[in-house]
Design a protein around this nucleic acid. Structure first.
Length: 570
RNA sequence: CGGGGCGUAGCGCAGCUUGGUAGCGCACUUGUCUGGGGGACAAGGGGUCGCAGGUUCAAAUCCUGUCGUCCCGACCA
């Protein structure tokens, strides 16, 4: 391709509304343009990258035995009502009516549609297992779209769905897809982790997320320093701490703590570590009840864990100030478990605390020297409700947990019969009886992968594409070609030779100065660059520069094709 | 949804306080010079100042409404 026929649309100025590196670079390099909040057009250069992600994804799906289909983005409400998600999904579901006033939505995902398709098309257990996939546009009316295509309202997703007669078969396909996903991200040369995940609104029991590691990631993930344990922090288990509770050494005392509300306030006011403070959170329970959650002061509540406990409202909701005053006789900031009459759920680490500080349920007062058994009963219900922190023991007993940020680019689930049962999707089994199928579902955010790849691979000059993602493999940059007929002839010849060799080359035949050309090629992240000049023509050499290298290399002109081929295959 | 910021040329911004008919940089067009790291000079083209009302002789500027967009928050015990 020639730059005179393939406009680059690069911009020097960083757009004002782009926060993170990948968003800024996607605009500056001319990959995307914003249409409206969370809606982006893909320019030719960006689309080439998007297509590469699709291509690699398709190849691995085909290898995994999945069959490509294409389902409508516009979906009738009836199917969503069958599974109950028409009500459950909330405002994120983009709903609309047709001219006959019938309800539709723009699909945020396709479980309902594929399940409908499967129940009509699959009749016999002999057709199972089977996996369908598609690459298609999804719509989610996000609360707050941001970071360009990272969290947008319309995006490209590869979604796959598998159907099975039994759990063993589901597990087998799940494992195959897990491997296929690992292959995809390896081919894309991205640093990633597969982590145990919460299945969220999609549902089901077992699930893994695939995260591209990047500091700007919206998710926190935890993984063991020595084993392969890795989990989303939402799901990472905080194990019961080792050791036993210390003996009581201090006397119980009621102390004045005027205007000291947060754990931070109290620990600095009393000059004690936060780990000696007890944090009491009042949350809504079931049927208008309230529940107290106890945490060690230096720990934070994990909402996802808490709302899964019976008796706690889901989604988790904190009690209002009026409710707190009603059950605690004090405002938030002085709440404690002593004398509290509502149900109490304590985090595992709480029961090992001794001589601790907690609110006294009187405004401006706390107790210190508090000890379980002596001053108040040990809570009956002890659960894992806190977020893990760096250095916690790994739940598999091997090593400690490290925390990192990740961008969720893939998510696989074992759905079980959640959708197939609701929609009565069954086949005739070996015994001639109808049997509900088990399902798995597997998604990759294709457009998000592009952003995540940039997030992980860029420098102050621009994007540094991994080989398999680059819009072009090689940039051909002649210096002042318009001034030299022989250089022009040599450049044209090399361009043709590169094309003939099957190398995807971008020939910069614009009449621009060298610096301008180099800056553009570096901004758009072409991995390999060939510089042609009159100097080299005299010596029979061309210059090669890798996107990541500081120095150029001189290569004999006759060897350049072989040299590049070696680079591209290596 | 709550709070805040911002809407002026394709992009980045100034002008608004104190109303008087719109400007700068980049980009774009043409020309000359330059020619290995986003060049210089010159001449150009491009904006009903988000939209709708209102105040005024006069509104980018003041007032009201509205739409768009971005950021923050939803962990306070």
């Amino acid at each position: 391709m020639r730059t005179t026929q393939f406009p680059l649309n690069t911009v020097k100025e960083t757009p004002a509304d782009a926060e993170i590196a990948s968003h800024q670079l996607m605009i500056r390099a001319g990959l995307i343009r914003k249409l409206a909040a969370g809606l982006y057009s893909w320019l030719p250069l960006g689309l080439r990258v998007l297509r590469k992600v699709e291509k690699i994804t398709r190849e691995e799906m085909e290898k995994a035995g999945a069959l490509e289909v294409l389902m409508p983005a516009l979906q009738p409400a009836e199917l969503w009502q069958e599974t109950g998600r028409w009500e459950q999904y909330g405002p994120e579901l983009a709903r609309l009516k047709d001219r006959h006033d019938r309800d539709f939505c723009l699909g945020p995902t396709h479980e309902e549609i594929i399940t409908d398709l499967a129940r009509n098309e699959l009749k016999s257990y002999k057709q199972l297992p089977i996996t369908y996939y598609q690459v298609q546009t999804k719509f989610r009316d996000e609360i707050r779209p941001r970071f360009g295509v990272m969290r947008s309202r319309e995006f490209i997703m590869k979604d796959a769905y598998s159907f099975h007669l039994n759990q063993d078969s589901l597990q087998l396909t799940y494992d195959v897809m897990y491997q296929a996903y690992s292959n995809i991200f390896n081919h894309l040369a991205l640093k990633f982790r597969a982590v145990i995940a919460d299945s969220g609104s999609i549902g089901g029991a077992i699930s893994h997320e695939f995260h591209v590691l990047a500091d700007s990631g919206e998710d926190a993930i935890a993984f063991s320093t020595v084993s392969d344990y890795a989990a989303n922090v939402e799901k990472a288990e905080a194990v019961m701490p080792a050791g036993t509770r210390g003996a009581a050494t201090a006397d119980l005392a009621l102390i004045d703590t005027p205007d000291q509300h947060s754990i931070e306030d109290i620990s600095s006011f009393l000059n004690i570590p936060a780990s000696l403070c007890l944090k009491t959170l009042i949350v809504k329970g079931e049927e208008d009840s309230l529940v107290a959650l106890l945490l060690r002061g230096d720990h934070e509540l994990n909402k996802i864990k808490a709302e899964k406990i019976d008796g706690v409202a889901s989604p988790l909701e904190f009690a209002g100030e009026e409710d707190v005053i009603r059950v605690c006789n004090c405002k938030p900031g002085s709440i404690g478990p002593i004398g509290l009459t509502i149900h109490i759920i304590a985090d595992r680490s709480v029961v090992l605390m001794s001589d601790f500080v907690c609110g006294a349920n009187q405004d401006g007062k706390h107790y210190q020297g508090v000890n379980w058994e002596r001053d108040l009963p040990v809570p009956v219900q002890i659960e894992d409700i806190r977020a893990v922190v760096e250095g916690d023991a790994s739940p598999d007993g091997l090593g400690k947990l490290t925390l990192a940020r990740g961008i969720e680019v893939g998510h696989i689930f074992q759905l079980g019969t959640k959708y197939s049962a609701a929609m009565k999707a069954g086949v005739i089994n070996e015994g001639g009886k109808n049997q509900i199928m088990l399902m798995g579902c597997y998604g990759i955010g294709i457009s998000r992968v592009v952003a995540a790849a940039i997030e992980q691979n860029h420098d102050n000059k621009g994007i540094i594409w991994p080989a398999n993602l680059a819009p072009f493999q090689v940039a051909l940059c002649p210096m002042n070609m318009h001034k030299s007929e022989r250089l022009k002839a040599a450049a044209e010849q090399l361009y043709q030779d590169l094309l003939a060799a099957g190398i995807d080359v971008l020939f910069d035949d614009r009449k621009v100065r060298a610096g301008f050309m180099f800056s553009d090629m570096e901004l758009i992240g072409i991995p390999h660059c060939i510089v042609l000049g009159d100097r080299g023509l005299d010596t029979g050499t061309v210059e090669y520069k890798s996107r990541t290298a500081q120095e150029n290399e001189e290569i004999p002109a006759a060897d350049i094709i072989a040299f590049l081929k070696a680079k591209l295959n290596g």
